[in-house]
Computed example of a mutant assay.
Amino acid sequence: MVDSHHGNSGTTSLMESLMGLLRIRIKRGINLAVRDVRSSDPYVVVKMGRQRLKTRVIKKDVNPEWNEDLTLSITDPNIPIKLTVFDHDTFSKDDKMGDAEFDIKEYIEALKMNLSGLPNGTIISKTTPSRHNCLAEESCIFFSEGKVVQDMCLRLKNVECGEVEIQLQWIDLPGSKGL
């Protein structure tokens, strides 16, 4: 008797622990490593916990423009997000072309601030590149058209060269616990 609502408890607990969705726009790759003869066929994989998402493959381009949105469900903002670039090979295992990790803690803190009435384009905070992050240049969290957005240019590790530009945007989910 007590167990009557057992069927959907999995979904409820997920919504209760879900803070919302993080939309990661994978904008472009810059000067990515060459893994085929003269070029590479790069795509990006984003991982957070058990979630794994990937962009489409762009053929023969070490400066690819993906402009593709990948959406992660965020339950714990302390888990770093890992981004890996791969070179797509038709007949063999795809080669890694470097990886980077980034944190969303600062971004989540900025989302919690009361920013109503801020002018469009206001910079909320900046993170400078350091040994503790993968930033290739200063990353800004700013207020844009009523939303808090963060731009990042990640320098890929474990590879000779390459950077990936991304942008973070938060999506509030009705029914989730929110921030």
Score class of each variant (00 low, 15 high):
2 V>P: 07
3 D>H: 03
4 S>H: 05
5 H>V: 05
9 S>P: 00
10 G>R: 06
12 T>V: 12
15 M>G: 02
15 M>E: 06
19 M>Y: 01
20 G>D: 10
21 L>P: 01
21 L>S: 11
24 I>P: 02
26 I>Q: 02
27 K>V: 04
29 G>W: 00
29 G>Y: 00
32 L>H: 02
32 L>F: 06
35 R>G: 13
35 R>C: 10
36 D>Y: 04
36 D>P: 04
38 R>T: 15
39 S>L: 08
39 S>M: 12
41 D>H: 01
42 P>R: 03
42 P>Y: 04
44 V>Q: 03
46 V>K: 01
47 K>D: 09
48 M>A: 04
49 G>Q: 13
51 Q>W: 10
52 R>M: 14
53 L>N: 00
55 T>E: 01
56 R>T: 02
58 I>Y: 01
58 I>G: 01
59 K>R: 12
60 K>D: 12
64 P>M: 00
64 P>H: 01
64 P>C: 03
64 P>G: 04
65 E>S: 08
65 E>M: 09
66 W>I: 01
66 W>L: 01
67 N>G: 05
70 L>W: 00
73 S>K: 04
74 I>H: 04
79 I>A: 08
83 L>Y: 03
88 H>R: 12
92 S>P: 02
92 S>D: 11
93 K>D: 13
93 K>T: 13
96 K>L: 12
97 M>A: 10
98 G>C: 07
100 A>I: 09
101 E>L: 15
101 E>S: 15
105 K>R: 15
106 E>Q: 10
114 N>H: 11
116 S>P: 01
117 G>N: 08
118 L>F: 10
121 G>M: 11
125 S>F: 00
126 K>N: 12
130 S>D: 14
131 R>C: 03
132 H>C: 02
133 N>H: 12
133 N>I: 09
133 N>Y: 07
139 S>Y: 07
140 C>F: 05
144 S>Q: 14
145 E>Q: 15
147 K>A: 10
147 K>Y: 15
150 Q>D: 09
151 D>K: 10
151 D>L: 06
151 D>M: 04
152 M>C: 13
153 C>V: 15
155 R>A: 13
157 K>H: 10
158 N>P: 08
159 V>K: 08
160 E>P: 15
161 C>L: 08
162 G>A: 10
162 G>Y: 07
165 E>M: 08
165 E>N: 12
165 E>V: 11
167 Q>R: 14
169 Q>R: 14
169 Q>A: 14
170 W>H: 07
171 I>Q: 12
172 D>S: 15
174 P>N: 07
176 S>G: 13
177 K>N: 05
